[in-house]
Nucleic acid binder design. Sequence first.
DNA 1: GTCACTATACCGACCAGTCGGTTTTTCGAG
DNA 2: CTCGAAAAACCGACTGGTCGGTATAGTGAC
Lengths: 180, 180
Amino acid sequence: MATSPTTVHRLIDAYEDILLTDGERAATLDAIARRAGVSKGGLTYHFKSKDELAAALFDRLRTLVDEDVAVMRADPATAAAYYVTSSLDVRSPLERCNVAVTRLAQGSHPEANELLAQCRTRWFEVLMDAMGHEDMVHLVMLLGDGIYFNASLTGTGAMPEETDPATIDRIMALVRTIRY
Amino acid sequence: MATSPTTVHRLIDAYEDILLTDGERAATLDAIARRAGVSKGGLTYHFKSKDELAAALFDRLRTLVDEDVAVMRADPATAAAYYVTSSLDVRSPLERCNVAVTRLAQGSHPEANELLAQCRTRWFEVLMDAMGHEDMVHLVMLLGDGIYFNASLTGTGAMPEETDPATIDRIMALVRTIRY
DNA sequence: GTCACTATACCGACCAGTCGGTTTTTCGAG
DNA sequence: CTCGAAAAACCGACTGGTCGGTATAGTGAC
């Protein structure tokens, strides 16, 4: 890419942001350009179509998942706890991107669906290597998904009982008592 | 409502169906009418606006949750297992409606968000009465959400490792070993 | 006659993508 | 260093199409 990284980056940020807070429908080219502080023409200069923008978002997710998986591989002992608790941090680049792509997937975007499936497979593998017990991995991943699902709902509007870190810690303590 | 219940029912079914399989964007008035086997005029005869259709969908969810909560209250001992395993049945009227409303909520539909929050509060209360331990209730609800989240993704396209009932049973067996 | 529609046409708003034009940046020759 | 031209970055009006909603004439059943 010979283009200035800042504007391109800002455009993907804007797309991600609008998908997150207002959903797929609100993510129009005009709205994205406006949020990124450029004109529509400026947007289309960098991304010829909306699909290209989506592709860039997908690339971002791939990179972020690569990093995340590397972190988990570096310390297998805390991988499960890391996976679950990090699902809670809606403000992290990974979670933001993940939720954004999920919004596209739920708009029946085949490529988004496929990408999410790949990411989940990778997380499954690394957790499997770290824990060595398939059912426990499924349990941990379901917990992560549940937290993540809650967060993705709270992100859009108002939700009661927002799951807080302390509760997650206590839940993980309960999970650690499981003998397998 | 003095209108024929079957067509009205079919229209809500069609709306739900399209939301489920193709997302909010695809759920146009034309598409809904077509799937229900009526003309667009037929649709607008029963529902003056799209919001009215959504309101009918919300009413349906409220009714289904009422029934679900009643089932859980009838047998507190199995309430937790029931909650988790029933999340898996994407074909049940409740889960279908729940996913459909979630699609609307993720399009930042305030009313859908509020309704989902109310439903979650009700499930939380009934599980709390049945289990008596807040962290365990959270754990069970997170598992349910995780399953439900997975199902809602697999529903749209292709997803690997589709969580199967046998796995859920084994996971619930693990959960039951937790002493609290 | 009324109810429950069908069929069709239309309107205004909105949206993705195009295009001609303008500004800014880069860079090599003098 | 600086002038000028090309390339990159960006603007905004416009087009073709879609969607929500409205309107209206007509039809078959009760």
